[in-house]
């Protein structure tokens, strides 16, 4: 995870904390070290709180939130349909749980890529570019956008993008480069789909997480499990 520190302080923040007069003599545009502070050394930084848009440092943690409630969403109709389809391909319904699209995980992904925080900026770029690339590739190969492909065609693409075999030397061709960036997109999209899905009650049940309930005593693990692991 990226450090939440502002390692390079921007000029606006510097001005805020050291005052306009001091700042103008101390800080050259683009260089944010406080050059005239005592014992000046390169690498001196001010750790100042994030003051960009977001829910702030004292949000209501009790209430429920829905995507779109705290900041506007990004996906247009086509992006949303593509994302929903991908969610359902990555996590389809089975005997254990519904699909990620049934649980509207694409709306969560929209919330994620629309986040005002710096942590999600990289994912935003990967996802929004990847959704376009996915259509470009679908059209080049099958003459149709991704949402209009047949299920065998979806499967063919997913198989190629989901499973990344190690390459001895990376193929320098344009086609290989595009494939690699689509694979990165797929991995990011899968991570987000999984994070969104497995944090729902349905997803928790699917992986066998049975906690978050009040109990009078600490539950014991099954004896046969301990025996199998040689821990009895």
């Amino acid at each position: 995870m990226k450090s939440p520190f502002s390692d390079r302080l921007d000029r606006r923040t510097a001005l805020k904390w050291i005052g306009t007069a001091a700042a103008s003599s101390l800080i050259k545009p683009g260089a944010f070290a406080l050059n005239s502070s005592p014992a000046a050394e390169p690498g001196v930084t001010i750790a100042a709180a994030y003051d960009g848009p977001g829910y702030g440092a004292d949000p209501d943690v009790i209430k429920d939130y829905a995507p779109g409630e705290l900041w506007p969403l990004t996906f247009d109709d086509h992006q949303r349909r593509t994302a929903a389809l991908l969610c359902g391909l990555i996590i389809p319904a089975d005997e254990h749980s519904p699909s990620a699209s049934d649980l509207k995980i694409h709306d969560f992904i929209d919330e994620w890529v629309s986040s005002p925080y710096p942590q999600q900026a990289g994912d935003r770029k990967v996802i929004l570019t990847g959704l376009i690339q996915l259509d470009v590739t679908s059209e080049a190969r099958f003459g149709k956008k991704f949402v209009d492909l047949k299920s065998a065609q979806h499967a063919e693409l997913c198989e190629e993008l989901a499973i990344v075999k190690p390459e001895a030397a990376p193929d320098p061709s344009e086609a290989a480069k595009t494939k690699r960036s689509l694979q990165q997109f797929f991995r990011t999209f899968r991570n987000l789909t999984a994070g969104g899905f497995y944090t729902t009650p349905e997803g928790m049940k699917d992986v066998g997480y049975t906690g978050n309930v009040v109990l009078a005593t600490q539950p014991k693990p099954p004896a046969d499990l301990l025996a199998r692991l040689g821990l009895d």
């Binding site: 391909l89 990555i90 996590i91 389809p92 089975d94 254990h96 749980s97 997913c158 198989e159 989901a162 499973i163 990344v164 075999k165 190690p166 797929f186 991995r187 899968r190 991570n191 789909t193 999984a194 994070g195 899905f197 497995y198 944090t199 997803g203 928790m204 699917d206 992986v207 066998g208 997480y209 906690g211 978050n212």
Partner: peptide
């Protein structure tokens, strides 16, 4: 422990499941 799933659950499995998966295999 089998802790409550969070963001990150299901990530990084490509390191040990043969390069990644999707669909029912992924689940």
């Amino acid at each position: 422990g089998k802790m409550m799933p969070k963001m990150g659950t299901g990530s990084g499995l490509e390191k040990f499941n043969g390069g990644g998966s999707w669909g029912k295999n992924f689940k």
